[in-house]
Design a protein around this nucleic acid. Structure first.
Lengths: 146, 146
DNA sequence: TACTATTGCTTGCGAACTCAACTATACCAA
DNA sequence: TTGGTATAGTTGAGTTCGCAAGCAATAGTA
């Protein structure tokens, strides 16, 4: 067996996330996962999600999502709403400020991802890459729509 | 533009490293990057590398490699040797114990990577994947042979 | 030769994550 | 209805990592 693909996968991820994270952080004060969470909320019905679903979607532990949302809540970008039908769950809701923040950050970030990732492939190659990566297991088994 | 490939890339990495790291940790007390460093040293001439090259290869910051090697040194798997021709550099040298440790851990780990990653593709697809990932920038620009 | 810039490496610090443990609520089966 | 199990979420502790700052040694330049 050769592990070239796996190694390249690890290296590329480390290098890309380091650079993208640094740009996003200095320009908008967001981590890559903060942004990821904002994307999910922005695209969700009513701009809200159960915290646990959010965690599974962005591949974060339950405690991880608690702390990440803590930051977004402090900044006023995400709100915390109780669920009426199930007292265990709490909704994470994107505020109007949060939506604006995301729209603002996404312009630069999308262009950064474009520059460092997407532009390296043709559209066809990108599809092929997505298809290949889609075969990898998410392991946890929880709901993960995106 | 669509970001499906990029998103899949992020998710797949998060899920795979979480699982592989956890298996490696419980079975051999190694992190994924510990293992990566051992691989590099094991395959290097004289089983040694300059710490800075090691850092660039596994995509770790200088401080990151200092702390990682600290652990491997404490365990007796890696030694620290001064360089005769340049007093600034220190060699990281794999000890015999370290080599044994690596050989022992690699059996299980290679099979885990095989299970969760490689086996999802044909050999041809794996090559294609490696080729595509190879186009992504390592950004830093430092020496990175593997 | 002397001065400056660069390189290798370490340390303090803070941010982000995971695991384990715990609380509270909901579901399910006898 | 009651008791056991699963689920949602938080908190404490420990780990890993990067950045900024600093030190020592080398390389480059005038």
């Amino acid at each position: 067996m050769d592990f070239r693909a796996w190694t390249r996968f690890l290296r590329a991820h480390a290098a890309l996330t380091r650079e993208l994270s640094s740009r996003l952080e200095t320009a908008h004060g967001l981590s890559l996962r903060d942004y990821d969470v904002l994307v999910q909320l922005y695209g969700a019905p009513d701009r809200r999600m159960r915290r646990i679903d959010l965690a599974r979607t962005v591949i974060l532990s339950p405690s991880g999502i608690t702390r990440l949302l803590e930051g977004l809540e402090r900044a006023g970008w995400v709100g915390k709403h109780a669920c009426e039908s199930d007292a265990r769950v709490t909704w994470a809701v994107l505020t109007d400020d949060g939506a604006r923040k995301f729209e603002e950050a996404s312009v630069q970030h999308r262009s950064d991802v474009e520059e460092l990732f997407s532009s390296r492939f043709t559209g066809e190659e990108r599809d092929r890459l997505a298809e290949l990566l889609d075969r990898l297991p998410l392991v946890d088994g929880g709901a993960c729509r995106t």
